[in-house]
């Protein structure tokens, strides 16, 4: 659906984005992550045609954005990181303005439906300038969804929202996803991305470091799996024998809770369960501790930053 090919952007001599080639499949939720200043917003703006790339190309729906901007843009919905509104318009006027631009059918009905869903309907006659930041973000969502876009590009979609708002937005995104909408999310709230994204792309210092599914990312990052065991009054011998199992690499005990680290080649919960059952242990709970997206993110970015820093230092020494 969205493809970038060797995308590059320079501001003077500063290279903000270098050789970004990402691919977002139709119908998937794509998480686009990176530390501050990594080039996420720059990349998104190039995808949207707001910034002209120094090199490379962007294709959406198989077409270059600069060739058919009108037709492509009316199939995209955007929630930007920094929402900018016409303060002197009421929310209703604002939405109808964009509905007219996008030639939305049954615009008032559609706008009302979305506003009610996001609990904004009672504030429809309030000037947008009087909205809180959370309300403005929700209004941005309504605007982005008015025309039932095929692609949603969201930059920090839940920033500023209260928990209720986050839930409302999440529900809407799920509904859109189920309806087949392709969604690109850029966010610092990694738990949200982890919960929803099919694939994730991680960018740092203007480069795309990795682009893969969550399980594959975890696999790339962690060398071992961890299983959390809650046992009822475990005996010391049991614990000793448990740690001696061939697939167990280490064992941490926190009172009656054990963290069992195993080899990363498979899920050893069945073997563990068999062992404990054979020893008559009472298992109160067993769960696999997965590597979080946050861990993966930090590990991957730090690793690459270390590599780049080392490479740059060596280059400086040579120079």
């Amino acid at each position: 659906m969205i493809t970038t090919n060797s995308l590059k952007k320079k501001f003077g001599s500063f290279v903000a984005v270098e050789d970004i080639s990402l691919n977002i499949e139709p119908g998937e939720i794509y998480g686009f992550l990176g530390p501050n200043g990594a080039g996420k917003t720059t990349t998104i703006l190039m995808i949207l045609g707001i910034l002209k790339p120094t090199a490379g190309e962007v294709r959406i729906f198989g077409e270059k954005i600069n060739k058919k901007p009108f037709m492509i843009k009316r199939r995209i919905g955007v929630v930007a990181e920094y929402q900018n509104f016409y303060d002197e318009m009421t929310a209703w006027e604002y939405l109808l303005f964009f509905a007219r631009l996008l030639e939305v059918e049954n615009a008032e009905e559609r706008a009302r439906e979305l506003m009610e869903r996001l609990k904004l309907w009672e504030f429809k006659d309030v000037l947008v300038g009087g909205y809180s930041s959370g309300m403005q973000r929700k209004l941005g969502f309504v605007r982005a969804l008015l025309h039932k876009p095929e692609v949603l590009i969201l930059d920090e979609p839940v920033s500023g929202l209260d928990p209720f708002g986050i839930v409302q937005v999440r529900e809407i995104l799920n509904d859109e996803h189920e309806a087949g909408t392709t969604i690109m999310i850029s966010s610092h709230i990694l738990s949200e991305v982890e919960r929803t994204a099919d694939r994730v792309g991680i960018i740092a210092r203007g480069r795309l470091l990795v682009e893969d599914t969550m399980p594959n990312l975890r696999h790339i990052v962690s060398l071992q799996s961890q299983i959390e065991l809650d046992l009822y009054q475990p005996e010391e011998t049991l614990i000793r024998d448990l740690s001696a199992l061939p697939f167990v690499t280490s064992l941490d005990r926190q009172n009656d809770r054990l963290i069992v680290s195993t080899q990363n080649n498979k899920d050893y919960r069945a073997e563990l369960g068999s062992f404990l059952a054979g020893r008559g242990a009472v298992v109160l709970g067993m769960r696999m501790i997965e590597t979080s997206l946050e861990d993966a993110f930090i590990t991957i970015t730090e690793k690459h930053i270390r590599e780049w820093t080392s490479s740059e230092l060596q280059q400086e020494k040579r120079d």
Binding site: T90, F123, D125, V126, L127, G130, M135
Partner: peptide, 8 residues
């Protein structure tokens, strides 16, 4: 008159 300002 048409605009209702609510100070949230």
């Amino acid at each position: 008159r048409k605009i209702r300002r609510i100070m949230l």
